[in-house]
């Protein structure tokens, strides 16, 4: 288990227990964090589970693969720290991480 905090656009924080081996998207959905739509259920097909990942956390996770990078590049509200939460696997190193959510996923 790793404790992950999702911060909504309006500043509301949701601290959740994320199971190792699942994805950050699933951790958010399973804990009813608003602001992660994940329409495609984690197939990297829709870019509606975007989060902003701080640099210190980015260093602890594998870099985005091409498909994810390109989806982000064309997603609304994306910036250089954006990732798709369905493509990030939870590991013990992520314990305590805090990620931000965009204003909207569409």
């Amino acid at each position: 288990m790793a404790k992950i905090t999702f911060v909504e656009f309006n500043g509301t924080e949701h601290e959740v227990e994320a199971e190792e081996g699942t994805t950050l998207m699933e951790a958010a959905i399973n804990n009813m964090v608003p602001g992660i739509d994940a329409d495609c259920g984690g197939a990297c097909a829709c870019a509606t589970c975007m989060i902003y990942v701080p640099a210190e956390m980015a260093a602890k996770i594998p870099e985005a693969e091409d498909m994810e990078t390109t989806m982000i590049d064309f997603a609304e509200n994306a910036d250089a720290t954006s990732r798709l939460s369905c493509q990030i696997t939870v590991t013990p190193e992520l314990d305590g991480a805090k990620v931000k959510l965009p204003e909207s996923q569409h």
Binding site: A47, T70, M71, D73, F74
Partner: peptide, 9 residues
């Protein structure tokens, strides 16, 4: 097909 830019735009 394997073209996210074409899909997103």
């Amino acid at each position: 097909v394997n073209r996210p830019p074409e899909f997103m735009m």
